[in-house]
Write a protein that binds this DNA or RNA. Structure first.
Lengths: 126, 126
DNA sequence: TTGATATTCACCCATGGGGGTGAATATATG
DNA sequence: CATATATTCACCCCCATGGGTGAATATCAA
């Protein structure tokens, strides 16, 4: 819960490949080889990235025989968001501008959920 | 606005010293030497960290004579928060648990602002 | 048992990053 | 002008990291 965990989570998420893996796992669970096939890196690199994400507690591994099934466990992002929330007043306006981007990017999220960002902004007015 | 900016911001913020600098600048603007005095690193290291934060557009530099005054410009965090918002459903519950932590940590924030996280959480309920 | 598949382990390589020191540059000030 | 202060520049060092390859390990399937 401390600085260290924040370091781990933020540096894990600072890598574009790892963000892509998380984005992919948002769609469905996947095995290591499946992930490796979907990204332009080797199986070994994929394995390493997964280990980093595991250390950051952003994914969870379920071993079933020889298959390792990865699933998203993004609770750890909460700490990062909590830290950034301290700077809320700075990015409030910017979030509004980025709202369109998020909505366009989150195709699997087009129902009543879509007002999440607006909810954040309105909840933070002073 | 793209992946690159996200990389820059997240990796900038992944370093504890740089987060400490941002936290410090939340209190007030400061010169490079002032910041260096307040952290257990050399003036040169401080200068480098500031350059990283500048590149990520998290701080702004105003040169007045030989003094370089740094001020917080954390709008760039909006993009990071926007990305993490896609994982909102995962950290919602966790944010509630971390709320106490944020409140305890943000001493300069003890007025009506304190319901910010709660606002986010309630705004995102489904 | 034998062979195929899934994943990791043990390395190697190159790059970048955080930390440091000492010199250069720019601006104040006596 | 001469000197002190503020900041950066040019390096150096070390280690972590992303990427790769080839071998080991474990499990499945024939």
């Amino acid at each position: 819960m401390g600085e260290y965990q924040l370091d781990t989570v933020l540096s894990a998420v600072a890598d574009p490949t790892r963000r892509a893996i998380l984005d992919r796992l948002r769609v469905s669970d996947a095995r290591v080889t499946e992930l490796a096939r979907e990204f332009p890196i080797s199986l070994n690199s994929t394995s390493k990235h997964i280990k980093v994400l595991e250390r950051a507690q952003l994914v969870e591994r379920h071993v079933r025989g020889r298959d390792h099934v990865l699933s998203l466990r993004a609770e750890a992002l909460g700490e990062a968001v909590a830290w950034m929330t301290q700077y809320r007043e700075f990015w409030e306006q910017r979030l509004a501008a980025l709202e369109a981007f998020v909505l366009a990017d989150a195709d699997s999220d087009v129902d009543g959920d879509t007002d999440a960002v607006a909810g954040t902004t309105s909840g933070a007015e002073r």
